[in-house]
Deep mutational scan, measured.
Amino acid sequence: DLSALRVEEVQNVINAMQKILECPICLELIKEPVSTKCDHIFCKFCMLKLLNQKKGPSQCPLCKNDITKRSLQESTRFSQLVEELLKIICAFQLDTGLEYANSYNFAKKENNSPEHLKDEVSIIQSMGYRNRAKRLLQSEPENPSLQETSLSVQLSNLGTVRTLRTKQRIQPQRTSVYIELGSDSSEDTVNKATYCSVGDQELLQITPQGTRDEISLDSAKKAACEFSETDVTNTEHHQPSNNDLNTTEKRAAERHPEKYQGSSVSNLHVEPCGTNTHASSLQHENSSLLLTKDRMNVEKAEF
């Protein structure tokens, strides 16, 4: 173990290094160091905050020279020094078990990766560091076993998940096959086929009936047209017969005018059967003409 005197000496050296690497504005270890034209180094955030307070150039807090945003430059070497100082402080805390008085939040800088452990060898070769390295080497064999167990647990979990997924996939297939086998029997399929065939026959029977009705309507229309044509021909046949009657009536009127007047009046009210309204109107006109002729003949006879 380190003596108290040596611990104090190391602590004083760390404090001196820390004062050199402090920012003059925030009085902390410089984060993202930036250098000016006057070779003074500050935190990048502190300098941008200072420049944004005034429009135009501002003055350096140490030498009062003008500073602009374009004049600022990043210093990589200074950032490396800060990183190495942080590593020294971490090693000091691990070796002594004491917390550094002016320690900052170094938890963000710590890294437990194997590459980081290899890099620590180049920091300080001390008894405390050696003991700590031995402890780490002793704890390393235990870690692979834990990793193997965790991997086995994960693989077993994956296997159970896969088996569950396969079961879920197989179950719908089985149910679907069961439904297909038990849903419709052979008799049901035959009945469905016969039902479809009967429906098709009914459709075939319905369509000819409609065509037959249309044919019957067409035949009825044709018969009505033929009947009207026969009526017209009958009226045409009746007209010459009426003319013959008129000639006979004229002759009778010349011989017996008194008797014919009474008979002509009675004939006005008689309509021949089986004739249309057109034929009756023609008869009325003929009878009126005959009456006028008879009157003329009677007057001539009187004179």
Rank of each mutant, 00 (worst) to 15 (best):
165 R>G: 12
229 E>R: 10
231 D>E: 15
161 V>S: 09
25 I>F: 01
36 T>I: 01
262 G>R: 10
220 A>K: 02
125 Q>G: 07
16 A>R: 06
217 L>M: 13
109 K>N: 07
188 D>N: 14
39 D>A: 07
87 K>Q: 11
239 Q>R: 13
232 V>A: 04
113 S>L: 09
63 C>G: 00
71 S>T: 12
109 K>S: 11
42 F>M: 01
162 R>S: 14
133 A>W: 05
67 I>H: 00
36 T>P: 03
67 I>F: 04
44 K>L: 01
125 Q>T: 10
211 T>K: 08
276 N>C: 05
10 V>S: 00
181 L>F: 11
99 E>D: 07
154 Q>N: 05
203 L>P: 15
161 V>I: 11
243 N>Y: 14
216 S>K: 07
93 Q>L: 00
75 S>V: 15
103 S>I: 02
57 P>R: 08
206 I>R: 11
54 K>D: 11
264 S>D: 02
40 H>K: 00
232 V>T: 14
3 S>T: 11
218 D>L: 06
9 E>L: 03
190 V>Y: 03
265 V>R: 06
135 R>Y: 07
66 D>S: 08
142 E>Y: 10
283 Q>S: 08
145 S>E: 12
209 Q>L: 06
35 S>P: 01
212 R>A: 10
203 L>C: 01
294 D>Y: 06
82 V>A: 02
6 R>D: 06
68 T>G: 02
260 Y>T: 02
276 N>T: 01
71 S>N: 08
217 L>N: 07
84 E>P: 15
144 P>I: 15
278 H>T: 01
163 T>K: 07
202 E>D: 12
233 T>V: 13
250 K>E: 12
233 T>D: 14
140 E>W: 06
35 S>N: 05
70 R>V: 11
82 V>K: 07
26 C>V: 00
4 A>S: 10
114 P>R: 11
206 I>M: 04
258 E>R: 09
131 N>F: 01
210 G>D: 09
40 H>F: 00
153 V>C: 13
257 P>H: 03
143 N>R: 11
107 A>E: 10
142 E>R: 13
249 E>P: 14
19 K>D: 05
194 T>H: 15
198 V>S: 08
261 Q>T: 11
208 P>F: 00
273 C>F: 03
41 I>Y: 15
44 K>S: 05
27 L>N: 03
132 R>A: 13
49 K>Y: 04
71 S>P: 06
217 L>F: 12
28 E>R: 02
212 R>C: 11
299 E>V: 08
102 N>T: 12
151 L>I: 08
276 N>I: 08
253 A>C: 09
270 V>M: 11
152 S>I: 02
8 E>D: 11
34 V>S: 00
39 D>K: 13
163 T>A: 10
281 S>V: 12
35 S>E: 10
260 Y>A: 09
238 H>I: 14
224 A>S: 02
86 L>S: 13
139 S>E: 13
233 T>R: 01
212 R>L: 15
155 L>T: 14
5 L>S: 13
227 F>L: 03
248 T>V: 12
85 L>A: 09
49 K>S: 02
67 I>M: 04
23 C>R: 00
167 K>L: 14
40 H>C: 01
257 P>I: 15
37 K>S: 15
250 K>G: 07
21 L>K: 00
144 P>K: 07
180 E>K: 15
89 I>F: 05
144 P>N: 12
52 N>D: 12
276 N>P: 03
149 T>H: 09
76 T>A: 08
147 Q>R: 12
127 M>K: 13
281 S>F: 14
112 N>I: 12
35 S>H: 04
36 T>L: 03
136 L>S: 09
247 T>N: 05
201 Q>S: 15
201 Q>R: 10
85 L>T: 01
9 E>K: 03
92 F>V: 01
241 S>L: 14
132 R>C: 03
78 F>C: 13
17 M>H: 00
129 Y>D: 06
44 K>T: 01
162 R>H: 03
7 V>E: 01
192 K>N: 12
257 P>V: 05
8 E>C: 02
241 S>G: 06
44 K>A: 03
222 K>N: 11
225 C>N: 03
10 V>M: 02
232 V>H: 04
50 L>H: 15
186 S>P: 14
45 F>D: 15
38 C>Q: 00
289 L>S: 14
20 I>K: 00
207 T>R: 08
138 Q>Y: 05
210 G>E: 15
19 K>L: 01
298 V>R: 02
17 M>L: 04
121 V>N: 08
277 T>G: 14
53 Q>R: 04
91 A>S: 05
248 T>Q: 03
39 D>E: 02
99 E>A: 03
301 A>T: 15
23 C>Y: 00
215 I>T: 08
163 T>S: 12
72 L>I: 02
235 T>I: 11
44 K>R: 07
48 L>P: 03
151 L>T: 13
160 T>A: 10
146 L>F: 02
57 P>H: 09
41 I>S: 01
27 L>K: 04
154 Q>H: 05
94 L>R: 12
106 F>N: 07
216 S>T: 05
253 A>W: 05
19 K>Q: 05
191 N>R: 02
254 E>D: 01
219 S>W: 04
225 C>G: 14
215 I>C: 07
70 R>N: 10
150 S>Q: 11
25 I>V: 03
32 E>I: 02
36 T>A: 01
168 Q>K: 15
132 R>I: 12
215 I>Y: 15
231 D>I: 10
140 E>N: 10
12 N>T: 04
164 L>G: 10
173 Q>K: 04
12 N>K: 08
38 C>R: 00
290 L>N: 09
131 N>G: 14
87 K>M: 01
74 E>P: 08
11 Q>V: 13
31 K>M: 07
93 Q>T: 05
146 L>G: 14
76 T>K: 09
62 L>E: 04
270 V>C: 14
143 N>H: 14
273 C>H: 14
38 C>K: 01
216 S>E: 14
75 S>Q: 15
32 E>M: 05
53 Q>K: 03
213 D>I: 03
153 V>D: 02
217 L>V: 14
108 K>L: 12
282 L>S: 04
213 D>H: 13
267 N>V: 09
177 V>F: 03
138 Q>C: 05
143 N>E: 05
300 K>N: 10
204 L>T: 05
150 S>E: 13
69 K>R: 04
51 L>N: 01
94 L>T: 06
125 Q>W: 03
80 Q>E: 12
143 N>Y: 09
30 I>A: 12
99 E>I: 14
152 S>Y: 07
11 Q>I: 03
240 P>I: 04
83 E>K: 03
79 S>P: 15
183 S>R: 14
53 Q>A: 06
197 S>K: 10
139 S>C: 03
259 K>G: 11
147 Q>P: 14
49 K>T: 13
86 L>K: 11
123 I>T: 06
186 S>T: 05
51 L>K: 04
224 A>T: 13
90 C>P: 02
4 A>L: 08
114 P>S: 05
299 E>D: 07
159 G>N: 08
15 N>I: 13
20 I>A: 04
163 T>G: 13
43 C>E: 01
285 E>Y: 12
29 L>S: 04
199 G>T: 13
184 D>E: 07
148 E>G: 14
261 Q>L: 09
280 S>V: 01
203 L>V: 10
1 D>V: 06
86 L>H: 06
11 Q>A: 11
85 L>M: 12
255 R>W: 04
248 T>H: 07
32 E>A: 04
134 K>N: 15
225 C>I: 06
25 I>E: 00
90 C>D: 15
211 T>S: 07
75 S>G: 15
266 S>K: 07
207 T>P: 14
232 V>K: 06
41 I>Q: 03
233 T>A: 12
212 R>F: 10
134 K>M: 01
252 A>I: 07
285 E>L: 06
223 A>L: 06
